[in-house]
Write a protein that binds this DNA or RNA. Structure first.
Lengths: 219, 219
DNA sequence: GGGCAACGTGAGCTATTGCTCGTTTTATAT
DNA sequence: ATATAAAACGAGCAATAGCTCACGTTGCCC
């Protein structure tokens, strides 16, 4: 377990053949992580499962972390797809609707490849803040911040930065953990419903009027 | 990195001498984790730093995970100290006060040994659900649930289990992440204040009347 | 003080893993 | 066809980490 160096792609694939090799390697990496967890994620195993030699793997990935990084990058890119457009679509909707849409989008994202998502965020050792990762977080934060600023008058939280921080953290982690611990409430929409109430009432200081009447009996 | 087995203490220390040895080992483990992170946490290094031989370490800990487990157990025990008494003290206070007290207690807990706490929860590979860990979570959950049930009339969330889940997750992770990402807001109490508002308005469906007037200007 | 068990020691075994490098195969260009 | 470079190969090296075990030391009990 040597300390891993900075790491950038060793060689850029030029022919279709090599691009296919890279893809097959990344896919195998994902499959191993999903099926057997991070402990089973060794470069030799990935190469074997991909049906390529270990040497080929190291032609395109300078080290293990680079492969992991590329996998995370692709996964994140998939998740990001659609966020901007959702934000644009809800651009001049009322605050409560924006929140609801964002939360529901977040829930859907978490239901795409839950196992890979969980392994990547829970089991993989933090490979100290990749550059693109920080950029991603910043972009998302900016998006939320802009949405809040446009509706500043409705928001009672004095410190807007703090509000953005708390809301993003809360939504992300509650939904994320619910994938494994509350799958039923995620599917039924109950969690998204309550989470929306929570965030909206936090921001506006006023209770959210429910779209559909809340059940009044206990579960 | 072999798969680690169940693991229970290999030998129970009987003399003072050996109990001191165990302590010095656990302390060294904590110091290494805090100062150098999980990558530097090797059994040989721990033994060296503790000033005992590697053989001694393995007389009391059957494997590496057992040492880590014991360290976590001690840390958690420290955190748990005071939770029950706080719960008892706030037994018949109004809901908002209970929430506030619990959140402030949680904040204080996170400020005890923040670095160790962070390493243990973020950097250490999940050693699949220790038995005492599950028990701890269950005890805490039961505590919160009891507090909610005693005030069921004030709570608008239809599914009380879901409410308990969301509240515990939210408080824990927001505070936990704030330790490293929002230390200022933790220290100032601003985060605890807003978090309390968030939880109370979520539960009661009504805005929390601020103890001290909120600043109305933006940050 | 003798015996026994608890305690302590550390050289080194075993196993694994990330990764290299000399070689061979395949595609492209002329 | 031949040359050239990209792509693929895979045996094996170097490093490291978890852990064992045969042996020495300390302390308790009669």
């Amino acid at each position: 377990m040597a300390k891993t160096k900075p790491a950038s792609p060793r060689k850029i694939p030029e022919q279709d053949r090599s691009r296919a090799t890279v893809d097959v390697i990344v896919d195998a990496a994902a499959r191993i992580l999903v099926k057997d967890g991070y402990d089973a994620f060794t470069t030799n195993r990935v190469a074997e499962k991909a049906g390529v030699s270990i040497g080929s793997l190291y032609q395109y990935f300078p080290n293990k972390d680079a492969l992991l990084g590329e996998l995370m990058r692709r996964h994140t890119t998939d998740l990001e797809k659609g966020i901007e457009e959702m934000a644009a679509r809800a651009a001049n909707a009322p605050l409560a609707e924006v929140i609801r849409a964002a939360i529901e989008h977040n829930v859907q994202s978490h239901l795409i490849d839950p196992v890979l998502h969980r392994v990547l965020s829970d089991e993989v050792p933090r490979l100290g803040k990749l550059d693109w990762q920080a950029a991603f977080v910043e972009r998302m934060t900016a998006l939320v911040r802009a949405a809040f600023e446009a509706r500043r008058a409705e928001i009672v939280v004095p410190d807007l930065d703090l509000a953005v921080y708390m809301v993003t953290r809360t939504v992300e982690t509650v939904v994320h953990n619910a994938v494994t611990q509350r799958p039923q409430d995620l599917q039924s929409g109950a969690l998204a419903e309550e989470l929306t109430r929570m965030i909206v009432s936090f921001l506006t200081g006023k209770p959210l009027v429910a779209k559909r009447p809340l059940r009044t009996a206990a579960a």
